[in-house]
Design a protein around this nucleic acid. Sequence first.
RNA 1: GGUUCCUUGGCCGAGUGGUUAGGCAGCGGUCUGCAAAACCGUGUACGGCGGUUCGAAUCCGCCAGGAACCUCCA
Length: 491
Amino acid sequence: MIQEIQIYNTLTRKKEVFEPLVPGKVGLYVCGPTVYGPPHLGHARSAITFDLIFRFLKQIGYKVRYVRNITDVGHLVADSDDGEDKIEVQAKLDELEPMEVVQKYTNLFHQAMEMLNVQPPSIEPRASGHIIEQIEEVKKILNSGYAYESNGSVYFDVEKFASENEYGKLSGRKIEDQISYTRTLDGQDEKRSALDFALWKKASPEHLMRWPSPWSEGFPGWHLECTAMSCKYLGETFDIHGGGMDLTFPHHEAEMAQAQAAHGKQAVRYWMHNNMITLNGQKMGKSLGNAISLEELFSGNHPLLEKAYSPMTIRFFMFQAHYRSTLDFSNEALQASEKGLERLMKATARIESLPVSENSSVNIAELSANCFTAMADDMNSPIAIAYLFEGVKIINSVADGNSSITLEDRIQLNSLFHSFVFDILGLKSEDQAGSGSSVVLNEVVALLMKLRAEAKASKDWATSDKIRNELSAIGFDIKDGKEGVSWELKK
RNA sequence: GGUUCCUUGGCCGAGUGGUUAGGCAGCGGUCUGCAAAACCGUGUACGGCGGUUCGAAUCCGCCAGGAACCUCCA
């Protein structure tokens, strides 16, 4: 029996008990990055959020097919209303082939994801590889009567659809409000209404990315790829669709309408949206020019960064806030997370060497239940982490002889921490130089520790402190504990 | 202008009608030759003003400030 979980459904605006379409299996689709620029903190939040969901669902026993697309075609440019393809503009600037740009940023995205220990999705389809499927979707929508062709382009008829179906429910919008507040876009005169959106767009002569279709040489509309690819890999109806909150409208609203028009039924059962990262209280975004790239974050090479932050620090930082809350970025907050993470990882490594007793003065079963209950409540990772820190207290307290633990409890505690820290939260140890990676280094330091111990034995504090201080200056932390001396490389 | 949401102690950040969130920083102590680490103890916070209630940070109203979406965006 799989643990019951609740997830917040954007569609109904409340937490619901999650019931998969097929018992024991979950179909999860998440909007992936548009690969026209370097990956930034915002991409990381979405990827990390749904990585957590992917991992947790698997941990509690579900078989999950996780599809996350790469958008490599078809979006407009930020400050240009001329309908040029976003990727194409960047290509001209870089004097590269569009697909070369796409490849470059896809590779960078994958590298960053690996560093963040984000598991690859089960399937990672590309929009440009599914043009045929998208054309088929356009045909279906035309057949159902909710689209019309105009001058080689095909548009979705929002007003007609809205008169017979629900439109605007996901984003909480009323169609009447929308009509009065729209801006002028290219091709507006081709549309029956400003609300209509393109399913297929005829390419202008200078447009490089183009494919043949029954209507014109052109490219698919902005929202179509997710409908086509989710349907292909997960079916006409599937369990969870995720993405950033900023995609709720118009992207996901359009997807809902398209899928309904094409297949005659709702595609998505649970919509999940992660909130934004803010910087000085404002959304961090590519178009606002205040996005910090992951490369800058990892290297510390950015005017707003006091230092470099490791991928695991970023990951842990994000889990200390709930995924539906905005998360404000600051050096102080990241440094707090860095230290907290270090404490958590150190305690995790200590569990196996804890002394065992006849009786436990601590309740591990309750701790474990609390951690899983927190996660089952709409992925409340901050609460789960708070309980893990209770576990840290227990571990350190047992190590210091202030609490006792039985062997069975120690095994359970170890299993809990390994499940949560490594499998669910997906954290990993980041020892630079890696203990054990250099046997020689270990032996050299061990030799110095031996010399220092001898100096200490003869109360030659000057020598012992000299060894410690100079090692410290090189980058080692030397700690005198009850069980002997230990050392590690500083962060 | 429309829609939605937020405001928690020095910082970050959970919670949502009565009971300690947690992390980081700070303070006091234990341990130590000293230091670090660890441990123990420590802070009565919920934007303002009203209302509902035996009781509100938590529900309602008003006000102030902020954000997101309405245009590509995680």
